[in-house]
C-alpha cells in the first residue's frame, strides 16, 4: 500500500511530499503523522512541499489540520519550500493556512523548528535581559 514516508530526525519528524496527494494518501499521512508524534514524542513536524505543484483547498485543509492536531500534542509544524506560483494561487484562492509556520527551505525550516521548540527557554532569557 502506497504511503508517504516519515523520517525521524532527533526530536523532529520530516516529510517530503513528492507527488500530488489524492484523498486517501493525504488522510493516511495525517493519521500517520499524528500517530508518530505521540509514539516518538516528537516536538516538531517539517513538511517539505517544494515538489508539490497544486495546493487546493482540500490540501490546504490537510496541512492546517496536521498543524492543529500537532499543536494539541505540543508539537510545532513548519511547511517549507512552497513554490511562488503555488503561493500566489493560494492567495488568489483566499487561503492563508493560518496556524501553519512556513520557511523557505528545509534548512531554514529546521532552524525555525529549533527556535519555536526552544521558545520557552529563549523567552525567559529575553525577559531577564529586558528587566535589567
Amino acid at each position: 500500500m502506497e504511503r508517504i514516508p516519515i523520517l525521524k530526525m532527533g526530536q523532529f519528524l520530516l516529510v517530503t511530499i513528492q507527488v500530488d496527494l489524492y484523498d486517501r494518501l493525504a488522510l493516511d499521512l495525517e493519521a500517520d503523522l499524528v500517530g508518530q508524534i505521540t509514539q516518538l514524542n516528537a516536538r516538531g513536524v517539517l513538511i517539505d512541499i517544494s515538489a508539490v505543484s497544486i495546493v487546493d483547498s482540500f490540501m490546504g485543509r490537510i496541512l492546517s489540520n496536521i498543524a492543529s492536531m500537532a499543536r494539541i500534542l505540543d508539537a510545532v509544524t513548519v511547511v517549507v519550500g512552497m513554490q511562488p506560483a503555488v503561493a500566489i494561487t493560494l492567495v488568489e484562492l483566499g487561503l492563508s493556512l493560518t496556524g501553519v509556520y512556513t520557511a523557505l527551505n528545509v534548512e531554514k525550516g529546521l532552524d525555525l523548528l529549533r527556535i519555536k521548540t526552544g521558545a520557552a527557554q529563549a523567552v525567559s532569557t529575553d525577559a531577564d535581559s529586558s528587566d535589567d
Binding site: S53, D56, A85, I88, T89, L93
Partner: peptide
C-alpha cells in the same frame, strides 16, 4: 498553469 489546474482540482 498552476491557477488553472488548482481551479480544476477545486
Amino acid at each position: 498553469q498552476t491557477k488553472l489546474s488548482t481551479a480544476a482540482s477545486e
